[in-house]
């Protein structure tokens, strides 16, 4: 049986033209991501990790090569279709949480549903369910400034799930959280990924992520260095040997 690939990246390069010099950030990346997996993209800063990540999220277009999300070539999409894709297919989680500061937790969770054309009552109901799912019942009327970092990230997770996306893209989701809260968020993402079949793709430096990842993609110097399945990680290193191996 053919496995379904939610993301397919073929021979992608990305150059940034900085006037006098052209920086090659990605130098030909091939990658396929299966539906329902929990993927971590790892790599040192400057490796092109974020650029690849933005490409997968439809936030940036490749210089050459193709990026398919759910078998749709994102280079072919116009502004409306891209907005639709971001709204319906992809849920974003940011390092800096990025909740809308003037809105309450519930309103933050319901905006993507408003964009998707869901009726007001229905979105409120689903918003409350989602907040409950991430463990924030009773906090729906709080503004982001009245919530802790971990709670804000939980709201962001609920918001990312609002339109039942196929992919959740998490950019360093634990980067601004302490150890314990970070682990809670990782566990939450893992639970959601396994119970809803959502593909979670996260760019990260955080080695706590390795324990829950089905697959780890190492990026180095604009190329895929290696792709490790979870079993390999555990057998070889138990998580930390690989850490030492990295500069």
């Amino acid at each position: 049986m053919a496995e379904k690939h939610i993301v397919r990246v073929t021979d992608v390069t990305k150059h940034f033209d900085l006037g006098k010099i052209v920086v090659e950030v990605l130098k030909g990346i091939d990658l396929t991501i299966e539906t329902g997996k929990y993927i971590s993209i790892m790599g040192p800063s400057g490796s092109g990790k974020s650029t690849l990540f933005n490409m997968i999220g439809g936030l940036d277009k490749p210089t050459s090569g193709k990026v398919f999300i759910d078998e749709v070539d994102i280079a072919q999409l116009d502004a409306y279709e891209l907005a639709w894709l971001r709204c319906r297919k992809i849920g974003y989680i940011f390092q800096t949480f990025n909740l809308i500061p003037v809105m309450t937790a519930l309103e933050n969770v319901t905006i993507p549903m408003t964009f998707a054309g869901v009726s007001h009552d229905e979105s409120l109901e689903r918003g409350m369910e989602l907040l409950q799912l991430v463990g924030l019942e009773g906090r729906h009327s709080h503004r982001p400034s009245e919530l802790s970092g971990g709670q804000q990230q939980r709201v962001a997770v609920a918001r990312a799930l609002a339109n039942n996306p196929a992919i959740i893209l998490a950019d360093e989701p634990t980067g601004n959280l302490d150890l314990k809260t970070g682990e809670d968020i990782i566990q939450l993402l893992k639970t959601l990924s396994s119970s809803y079949g959502v593909t979670v793709i996260s760019a990260t430096h955080d080695y706590k992520m390795l324990n829950v990842s089905d697959q780890v993609v190492w990026i180095r110097d604009g190329r895929v260095d290696k792709i490790q399945e979870r079993s390999e990680l555990e057998i070889r290193t138990g998580g930390l040997g690989t850490v030492e191996a990295e500069p």
């Binding site: 936030l59 502004a79 971001r86 800096t96 918001r159």
Partner: peptide, 14 residues
């Protein structure tokens, strides 16, 4: 800028 970028990530049109 972050709020605007986020809204666009969530599907807002220009």
């Amino acid at each position: 800028f972050r709020e605007i970028g986020t809204l666009k990530c969530l599907g807002a049109l220009d």
